[in-house]
Amino acid sequence: MNEVSEYIKDVAKGVKTLLGGLSVTGYYFFHPKEIITQQYPENRGTLKMFDRFRGEVIMPHNEKNEHRCNGCSSCELACPNGSIRIVSKHLLLENGKKKKIIDQHIYNLSLCTLCNACVKACPTDALKMSQEFEHATFGRVELIKVLNKTGSVVMEGLEE
């Protein structure tokens, strides 16, 4: 008799736990407000990333088309993946001396792991992380970017 009551108790307990599980999922079914997914391209307007979100490396320019990079190569050295390359050129000054200035700051997004090391290493705060996260392109070449705009120069006082 004891065994039979044990058996019935087992069944009742099992059914009770199953009903508990059903109540949890059932609660969410009947409360659609709890839905967490978002409709992505539709909510683009309201979607705002956090300020520190690391989307890609950019070089901010001011309205006079000046940036803060003097081509010191700190970022190139700090980068663990070799995704930054700095091409410099030599300028002939009036006094006959040569001066090294930055020509192109080449940044390869496809190699970048967004570790923030270059931003940290930059002595002149020339680099920043943007909050852009839509990086899809039709070719890998498009991910190789030149960060300084054409015709831009270094801000005064920041030259080496």
Binding site: M49, F50, R52, F53, R54, T113, L114, C115, N116, K120
Partner: peptide, 21 residues
């Protein structure tokens, strides 16, 4: 994590000597 470190998974927030931000 995203607000603190800037990334959701590969955070890289520690640096030898302290924190990045």
């Amino acid at each position: 994590f995203e607000e603190t470190c800037g990334a959701r998974l590969t955070m890289n927030y520690n640096i030898p000597g302290g924190l990045m931000n």
